[in-house]
Nucleic acid binder design. Structure first.
Lengths: 345, 345
DNA sequence: ACATATATTGCAATCGATTACAATCCAATA
DNA sequence: TATTGGATTGTAATCGATTGCAATATATGT
């Protein structure tokens, strides 16, 4: 088997034309039953396979979809991608992965690169809070030919669909839960609030406080990266305050873990003295031996699936009926030991 | 911006030929300095971008690489993929992700599908221990046009390159370490040994026993899936033996975790009564609060990078000099509390 | 001024499949 | 028998870029 067989090879063998073969293969226009059968048999026997590149060039559809994420090796993102792949593959699409490492220039570059290889759409979780300033991104927006769907970290841009969770509710529920446990001095470890998701978690936190008659104290909000060490650092700051908090709501599981480590090493008890709630339901929050971590599940698999569905709707639509869909999934608070003071609610 | 500009548009605007434009753009043959400059400027101004699909059709290279894994949402595989993407992207390649969910028929199908979309190569961790019986796989092998690189779960097939870790050594070192801790009745939780990696870990385990004068006891080897529940089940079996083991070497971190849970709940102490060692260095093994888990690091990032490099070598080689490369990385035993009886070695 | 060499550029085929339009064939109808 | 029409199949353009070969233009040497 040297070269792949083409429709021309089949045509030649049968004394037909490539056009006829193509039609027979595609069940399209009226082709005599005989020739169709003949073509199909010969195609099988010659091991014919349609050259998707030629098809892509002709049709302008590559059946490739680009997915851009900050990184792939986190449970959240890889789960979303899993959902995307599972949803798109049966429809004939392949998923191309790109990582940005949270660097704006790389994100820009990868957007360009994906458009350049003619993906039929891009699903992305943004790394750059000021995405509108990106040349590559703007070209994508102007062009409007390639559907774009945000998931999780989105930007509120007119005409762009998105799938997110209700981060406000996530923040609200987490905080409300802590209040219900009797906490009234609740700190918040917040990521960069230029991102909607983190701003919304923060706003949910504030709202829950306000709804329950607790005054917002800005000194209890600490900006924290999403990693263990930074969580430790933030906890240290809090513990060193004159009146430390009696609870911490972290917008990241990793930071929550760091905080828990720091707190325990200071001889302070969780949840008795300080309650902790994380965000994302990373696997390790469930695996902890002593203090399983209360957290907010974001249903990444479903998020991926939904984002894929939104994309599919957009490509199937004609340009006229272009609809924008902003799906908001409902997060779920998962109460575990790190915040549960009273065994029975 | 309705349509993308092509070299024909540029040619027309300049009163030239597409051929000339193409050459000017590619710095290839001798083109007058003037026209080159003119073409480049016009291209820029018209927002020209090379149509990769056309290029792919003409050249037969898609600059896409397929990666097939059982699943993407495990730390090990997503880390490998991260490495692959980081290595290949700068060389102009894009990474297409496919998951098999450990199902042979899906694996078969995805291989076909990737070949069909003309990927320039496939990197895979096999899900089917009897891969040679796969039609799609065999076609791929016969064809020999598309480089294939195995990583982690490989098959020993002549002419196919691979990147793995020395699983034998991993198993040996883990077992030796347990022996050094004074254990002499060491159980082994083993995955399906039809896969080389699990067979080799098992063989390393046996060899270490034999080298240290300990008789191999088949009843101490339990076949276990790579998940927490199955680890619990296996531990239960072991604990219920007349003389339970004093150590467990698990070929999976998840099974090790399950075993640890089951053991602790039985009131048995780790590492005092039973030592446990896992495999893979999943993040949670480090995050445990009381009993951080001893495990074997497989350097997934490096594995991904290396697999990508092997692929790059293969594509750059002419057919004549086809070399097969079987890279074996060295795993590293990471000793933590679950197996460390004596504080100082 | 003429022949030859060299530098640029154009022509046309190619990659493989699709598709509007034209052409052919055979049968049925007037 | 001539004509119309439906059923098949062929012709050729198209998608966008590349490239061997031919053609033109310019320069050089005598």
């Amino acid at each position: 088997m040297k070269k792949k067989t083409t429709i021309y090879d089949i045509a030649e063998k049968l004394g037909l034309t490539a056009a006829t073969v193509s039609r027979a293969l595609n069940n399209n226009t009226k082709i005599s039953l005989n020739t169709r059968k003949l073509v199909l048999e010969t195609a099988l026997e010659m091991n014919y396979e349609q050259n998707k590149l030629a098809l892509a060039l002709k049709s302008g559809k590559s059946y490739n979809v680009g997915v851009i994420v900050p990184r792939i090796d986190s449970n959240f993102f890889s789960s979303v991608i899993r959902g995307i792949e599972e949803e798109l593959y049966p429809k004939g699409y392949h998923v191309i992965i790109c990582q940005t490492h949270n660097q704006e220039n790389i994100e820009n570059e990868k957007i360009n690169s994906l458009v350049n290889v003619q993906v039929d759409g891009i699903l992305m979780s943004i790394s750059n809070a000021n995405l509108e300033e990106n040349k590559g991104f703007n070209k994508l927006l102007k062009n409007k030919k390639t559907p774009l769907v945000f998931f999780d970290r989105k930007k509120d841009i007119k005409g762009i669909s998105s799938v997110t969770i209700d981060d406000f509710k996530g923040g609200y529920d987490a905080t409300k839960h802590l209040l219900d446990q009797g906490c009234n001095r609740i700190a918040h470890l917040s990521n960069d609030r230029n991102f909607e998701i983190f701003r919304n978690r923060y706003l949910g936190y504030k709202q829950a406080l306000s709804d329950n008659g607790i005054e917002f104290d800005e000194s209890l909000v600490i900006e924290t990266q999403s990693n263990v060490l930074d969580g430790r650092r933030a906890a240290r700051l809090l513990l060193d305050m004159e009146t430390p908090p009696d609870a911490i709501f972290s917008s990241s599981d990793f930071a929550a873990l760091g905080a828990i480590q720091e707190i325990k090493e200071s001889g302070i008890n969780i949840p008795e003295d300080i309650c902790v709630v994380g965000f994302s339901n990373e696997p390790f929050t469930r695996f902890m031996e002593l203090t399983t971590i209360t957290t907010v599940d974001q249903f990444p698999l479903e998020m991926g699936r939904t984002a894929a569905q939104v994309f599919l709707e957009e490509v199937s639509n004609t340009d006229e009926t272009k609809t924008t869909k902003n799906v908001v999934l409902t997060p779920q608070l998962i109460i575990r030991k790190s915040s549960l003071k009273h065994k029975e609610g």
